[in-house]
C-alpha cells in the first residue's frame, strides 16, 4: 500500500565536480509501498544520485530526508533504515557468502537466523560456504541483494538488480521487487532493461545531464499521448481549437490517423470538450507507445546510450 508521506524525500539535490554538474538540483519523493524507477542515459547522474541517497557521496547542495530523518543532520538514524546495492555487490572475496552476511548481521545486531533467511530469500543457501570471490557474477548479485535486505530496510535501493543474473534469477528478481513493495517498503530501482522497468515500477523519473526531465506514474508517461480519430465529417480546425483548450493537452497536431493529442489528459475529458464543440469522435484511443520510445523521445538519444 502506497502511503502519502514520502519515505525518501530528495529536494534540490546537486553534486558538482568542479565545473561539471553530475546532478543538478533534482527533486523527487518515493513513498512506502511503491517502486520508483530512475532512468537515463549513461552519465546522466543516476548512480551519483543513488550514492548520495546511500550516504556514500556528499551532496554539494540540497536535502535528503530518509523516513523523516535529514541525512546531513541525523546520518545514523537516516541510514539505519535504508539498504542498497549500487554498481555491484561489494563483499570480502576471501570470506564465504555466509561469513560475509554473518559479519554484516553482527554489526547490525541481528540474530544469526536472519542470515539463513536472507540466504534462502535469494536461493544462495547451497553456495553459502563458498568464497565470495569464487562466485559467478549472478551469484555475487544475489548475495549483494541479500546483504542489502539483511536488516529489512524500509527503503531499498537497487541499481541494475538483474545484471548478471540468468533467466531464472531475472524472473525471481522481478518477482522479488514488487513483493518488497507489497511488504510496505519503498524501492528505488534503476535498470537498462526498459521493459523491466515498465513491468516493475509504479512511478518513474527520467534523468538527462543531471536533471529530471520527466517524472510521473508509468501509465501517465506511457499513456499521456492520445490519438483521436474524428469521422465524419472531419472539422479539423474546430476540433483542433477545442482540444488545444483542454488543460493538460500540451500538443495537438493533425496526423494520418487523426488528431494526435500529447499530454497528461484523459480520453473522457477530450471527448467532453469535442461534444461541447459539436463534434462527435468515432474513436478515442490511447497511443500505447512503449517506454523505450518515450525514453528516446525525451532524451533524444540513441538506444545504445540507454542505461
Amino acid at each position: 500500500m502506497v502511503t502519502a508521506s514520502p519515505a525518501l524525500h530528495v529536494e534540490a539535490l546537486a553534486k558538482h565536480y568542479g565545473a561539471l554538474a553530475a546532478v543538478d538540483g533534482i527533486t523527487f519523493d518515493v513513498r512506502a509501498g511503491e517502486v520508483f524507477g530512475l532512468l537515463g542515459p549513461n552519465g546522466c547522474g543516476k548512480s551519483t544520485t543513488l550514492n548520495m541517497v546511500l550516504g556514500l557521496v556528499r551532496p554539494t547542495s540540497g536535502r535528503l530526508t530518509i523516513n523523516g530523518h535529514p541525512l546531513a543532520a541525523e546520518r545514523q538514524a537516516a541510514l539505519a533504515s535504508i539498504g542498497g546495492l549500487v554498481e555491484g555487490a561489494a563483499l570480502y572475496p576471501y570470506l564465504s557468502g555466509r561469513e560475509n552476511l554473518a559479519l554484516l548481521a553482527r554489526l547490525r545486531g541481528l540474530p544469526a537466523g536472519r542470515v539463513e533467511e536472507a540466504l534462502a530469500q535469494v536461493e544462495m543457501t547451497y553456495a553459502a560456504e563458498r568464497s565470495f570471490g569464487d562466485y559467478s557474477q549472478g551469484m555475487k548479485q544475489r548475495l549483494g541483494v541479500a546483504a542489502a535486505l539483511l536488516h529489512r530496510p524500509t527503503i531499498v535501493v537497487l541499481d541494475e538488480p538483474t545484471s548478471g543474473l540468468d533467466p531464472a534469477g531475472t524472473r525471481d528478481m522481478r518477482a522479488l521487487i514488487p513483493a518488497l513493495a507489497r511488504e510496505g517498503r519503498a524501492v528505488v530501482l534503476t535498470s537498462h532493461l526498459l521493459n523491466e522497468v515498465e513491468q516493475t515500477c509504479d512511478r518513474l523519473a527520467i534523468m538527462q545531464r543531471g536533471r529530471i526531465i520527466a517524472e510521473g506514474p508509468v501509465e501517465t508517461l506511457l499513456g499521456g499521448t492520445v490519438t483521436l480519430v474524428v469521422v465524419p465529417p472531419p472539422d479539423t480546425e474546430t476540433a483542433l481549437a477545442a482540444l488545444r483548450a483542454v488543460p493538460g493537452a500540451l500538443r495537438v497536431t493533425p496526423s494520418e490517423a487523426g488528431l494526435r493529442v500529447e499530454g497528461t489528459v484523459d480520453g473522457a475529458i477530450l471527448n467532453h470538450a469535442l461534444v461541447d464543440a459539436g463534434i462527435y469522435a468515432s474513436t478515442i484511443q490511447p497511443d500505447t507507445r512503449s517506454l523505450e520510445s518515450v525514453f528516446l523521445d525525451l532524451t533524444g538519444g540513441a538506444a545504445g546510450t540507454m542505461q
Binding site: 546511500l54 541510514l79 542498497g84 561489494a90 547490525r108
Partner: peptide, 11 residues
C-alpha cells in the same frame, strides 16, 4: 568497494 558496504552499516 567494501568500504561502501561497511560505511553503509556503520554510518
Amino acid at each position: 568497494n567494501t568500504v561502501r558496504t561497511m560505511t553503509g552499516v556503520e554510518a
